[in-house]
C-alpha cells in the first residue's frame, strides 16, 4: 500500500463519515459544519487526482462563500430541533423501505461491476489552470456559454421572486 492509497482511504473515510453526520445531526448548524468538513475531504481527493485548481475553487467557493451563506440563513431562520416538523411513523417507514431498496440495488450492482480504466492523457499538467482553460474554451465552449444563459435565467428569476410588487398597488389605487 503506497502513501497515495493510504491518503485516499483516509480521505474517503473522512468524507463518508462527515456526510453521514450531515444527515443525522439534529442541529442544522452542525450539519453545515460537517458539510464543510466533507468539502475539505473532497478537495483532498481533487488534489490526489492532480486537479489543484478545482480543489482550491471548491474550498473558496463552496466551503467558504456558499456555506457561510447557508450558516447565515439557518441562523436568521432560527432553526432548531423544536421547529423541526414532526413526520408520522408511516412516512419514516416508507422512506426507510424505499431508500433501503435503492441501497440494495446499487450495492448488488456495484459488487459485480467491472470498472473500465479510462486512460488519462497528459496526466501531469491536467489540473493546471492553463490546460483547464484551454479545454474549457476549446472542446467545452458550448456548455460553458450555456451555463451563462442558465445563470442569467436564474438571476432574472431571483429578481422576479424577490422584488416587491409595489407598482401594481399604486396603479390600482
Amino acid at each position: 500500500m503506497s502513501l497515495h492509497d493510504i491518503i485516499f482511504w483516509i480521505l474517503s473515510l473522512w468524507a463518508i463519515v462527515c456526510a453521514i453526520f450531515v444527515v443525522i445531526s439534529r442541529n442544522p448548524v452542525n450539519s453545515v459544519l460537517f458539510l464543510i468538513a466533507t468539502f475539505f475531504a473532497i478537495s483532498g481527493h481533487y488534489i490526489l487526482m492532480n486537479a489543484q485548481f478545482l480543489a482550491i475553487v471548491n474550498i473558496i467557493v463552496y466551503a467558504g462563500a456558499i456555506m457561510v451563506l447557508f450558516l447565515f440563513v439557518i441562523m436568521l431562520m432560527n432553526l432548531n430541533t423544536d421547529t423541526e416538523p414532526q413526520k408520522s411513523r408511516l412516512v419514516h417507514f416508507a422512506a426507510l423501505i424505499s431508500a433501503g431498496s435503492l441501497l440494495l440495488v446499487v450495492l448488488s450492482a456495484f459488487r459485480k461491476a467491472e470498472l473500465t480504466q479510462i486512460p488519462v492523457t497528459d496526466a501531469g499538467d491536467i489540473g493546471l489552470i492553463k490546460v483547464l482553460g484551454k479545454t474549457l474554451f476549446d472542446h467545452y465552449v458550448l456548455p460553458f456559454e450555456l451555463s451563462s444563459v442558465l445563470f442569467l435565467a436564474a438571476m432574472v428569476g431571483a429578481m422576479v421572486i424577490g422584488r416587491k410588487e409595489v407598482v401594481e398597488e399604486k396603479s390600482t389605487k
Binding site: 435565467a153 432574472v156 428569476g157 429578481m159 422576479v160 422584488r163 410588487e165 407598482v167
Partner: peptide
C-alpha cells in the same frame, strides 16, 4: 398575473 410582465416573457424565451 403580476407586474413583471417583461420578465415573464424573458423566462419563456429562456
Amino acid at each position: 398575473v403580476g407586474v413583471h410582465v417583461g420578465e415573464y416573457y424573458a423566462l419563456h424565451f429562456f
